[in-house]
Amino acid sequence: MINLQDIRDTARDMLAKGEVRTVIGYRRGTRGMLAEPAFITDPAQADDLVWNPTCFHNLSLYLVEDRKFLAHLRQNPGAPIGIVAKGCDARSIVVLMQEHYFKREDVYIIGVSCEGTGVVDERKLAPHLNGFQASDAVFDGDDFVFTTAQGEKRLPAREVMADRCLECRIPFPKEHNLVFGEDKTGRQLAEPFAALKRFEAQEGGDRWNFWSHHFDRCIRCFACRSVCPMCYCDECVVDSITFPVTSETSAEEKANRIRWIERSATRSENITYLMTRAMHLAGRCTDCGECERACPVNVPIRLLNNKMEREAREKFGFEPGASIGGPSLVASFLDNDPGDFIR
């Protein structure tokens, strides 16, 4: 069990001593039970921090934002940023460090172990609450306890947990400066890649029907890209409006720039977008599942990322976010990589 007061005390002490300039964590949001990202700079605010089953955000995104902001201001980082990180978030931070986005000393990782549970999936929770909104959610052993207008509702965590948490193999931040909670690495609430296997059990023609249905629905709002800590490119290859335009850019240059895909939300362009994104995340995605949660039309984006993760694991023995000095998936190779498909 994690004692929330420990997290708050740590944040307060570190801010007071000036060891970190900000602590990125979670605080109570304004909508029901949901937590929201919090940026604590004043030690007095440290008591705002919370830790509950609705802390699903991958906060490493804000380390990227901070980097971009500092680059814009042309400032050096100074003291590190403290960040509250779950297992998957800590792996994202490791991937960012692998890619030299920032250095290890620029970040102070306050790890929190998900232990035997994880975060809640609102879509799974809704049917259990009889139409009421939960105003509070807390961890309690292997259960979640929700408070609604009807009173307290205790539910076994595995019934309402997000799929990604059920399938998670390493619910513990291996890379950390400080960690709260027990290391329950190796717990198995569901088979790894269970959702993917369920999908693959359907056959052949069904796959295209399934995907074309979802690709048709994508509205290209780019929420999946915005919420992803790995999608940090300033210029996004699939989105022509992100290409830089300065006073020097001529009309001709703008017109003749390569547009790999159009911005229109049609099926063919959506496919190319989502598949490009899956390729770009291959070996980098740590399965925090935020893209799927953020998707307003419920496109099962996680399946694509999971597929890449599993191929990398099975074919190349690659584990994303394993160590800071580790290789990247597509910039490394082994002599005995499989090549049977090549004629």
Binding site: I271, K307, P338, F341
Partner: peptide
Amino acid sequence: IEGNFLARRKMQLIMELIEFIGV
């Protein structure tokens, strides 16, 4: 020296992905 080793990995991934969506 190593270009085709890198290609072998990338092409395997894209091949799997294309197949995965039902092409």
